[in-house]
Structures are given as C-alpha cells and as structure tokens.
Amino acid sequence: MLELRGRSLLLGRALLALSVVFTLAPFLYILATSFKTEIAIATGDVLFDPTLGNYQQVLFGRRSNFVRNLFNSVTVAAVSTAITLTIGLLAAYTLERQQHSRLVSRVFLGWTLVFHVMPTLTLIGPWYLIFRWLDLYNTLTALVLVHVVLNLPLTVWLLMGFIRDIPVELEDAARVDGCTPFQVFRKVVLPLVTPGLIAAGVLAFVFSWNEFSVALTLASRAAATVPIGIAQFAQQFEIQNGPMAAASMIAILPALVLMIFGQRFVVQGLTGGALK
C-alpha cells in the first residue's frame, strides 16, 4: 500500500476531494433540479422551495408513461440478467474446466469479445432488420435477447476468473466423496462461485438498466425502458427539466442499491487473480 506523508498527503487528499466533487456535483445538481419548479430551474435559483410536483407528475401524471417504463426496465434487466448468468456460468465452467484445447476457448472468447469491442451502434442496424423480420420489433423479448448478447462476454470472463480460483482438488474430493458430475457442480462449484454470480449479476443488471441506444432503436412506446422514458421528457419544443430530473433520480435508485450491495463482489471480480 502506497503511504503518503506530509505535503504529498495534503496533495493526495486535495486530488481525492476534487474527484469526489467532480463525481458528486452533477448528481447533486440533478437531485436539486428534481425538487425545483420549472421557474426555479429557469431562473437558476440556488435557494428554492422544494416541491414534490415533478415526482408526482412523473409517477402519476396522465401524460407520463414512466411507470410503464419502470416495469419494462425491471423486466428486461431481471430476465436478461438471469439468462446471462445461466448461460455465462455454464459456459465459463465448461471453458475453464473441460480439457478443450486452448485454441477452442481462445477463439470462443475472442469471438465473444467482438460484441464487447465493436461499437454497439454498428450492430443495431442488422438487429433492427432481424427483429422486424422475426416480428419481435418493439417487444421486451428483443431487448432481453440483445442485452444477453451484449452482457455475455464480460460475464463469461468474470466468471471464468472466479471458477479458476476454485481449486480443482475440491471437485476431485467431491467426486471421491460420492458426487455425480452434476452434484459436483451443484453442491461445490455453485456455492463457491456465488460471489462471482453476484458481481457479474450486478454489472449485467446495471448495464441493461442503463442501456440506451439499443432500446431506442428496437423499442417504441410499448416496450420503452427507463432511459428512453427519461429522454422523452426532452421533446422537440419543450424540455421538461424538472420531471426529467425526477425520473433520473428514480432511475438511479435500483442501480445504486445494487451497487452498494454488490460493490464488494464487483471489486473482487474485476481484480480477481491479481493478488493471491
């Protein structure tokens, strides 16, 4: 651990404070905006009378579709995360533990990375055509499928790291103790990889929750998710700053809760194998 003393300690603290300000300032600005009236926003008041009007409008307003957006987002994020974790865990276990030649797993992982490395926008056009053709345009199914594809590479990579950290001798011991191959997976591997599943699950859920470009292209009103809903507060002739800010604050909540809960596992996952 790098230990700072004297002036460098002060400098370090200052840099830290600066980065905290940079991170928190926009968040606090939006938080304040969500409690302001449109007039207070327009005049840029620093001190203002807080109002819950924006939240009321977002959640209960006749013109607002935001509750529907929330429902869509929860569905898409939860279902796509569940599918991603299931496929990802089985794939990671197989790639890590089965004695395939290294080439097979390298090629496979390289291929999955393509989806991670390529700008998502280049894939959206073909996806639009495919889902039109499949009659899945503007459905949650389409969003779920695309989010699974986009999330799988990182999930597989993360889970492979966690599985690599499980000693093979544990699986050998379980086999000698009387486990069938499935029981080895179910009773030994699965409990030990749970922190990895939480880490990968949080990342996949948050990604899916925040994903904008695909949702914008593949879903119109019926299947619109939260990011689309937020964007719709900025129409051509009118930008509803207050409701938009309120919607943003509501949208942050699930991800925030998940990150606070899963942070420990995420850090462990991203730095896994770095230290013994």
């Binding site: 000693p167 001798e169 544990l170 050998d172 011991a173 379980a174 409990p191 030990l192």
Partner: peptide, 13 residues
Amino acid sequence: VAMVFQSYALYPH
C-alpha cells in the same frame, strides 16, 4: 475409496 489430498480440499462453505 476415500482420499486425503495435499491441499486437504476441505469444502470452504
């Protein structure tokens, strides 16, 4: 058969 491993291979959970 029963086996004792070098790393003990105890189930940590």
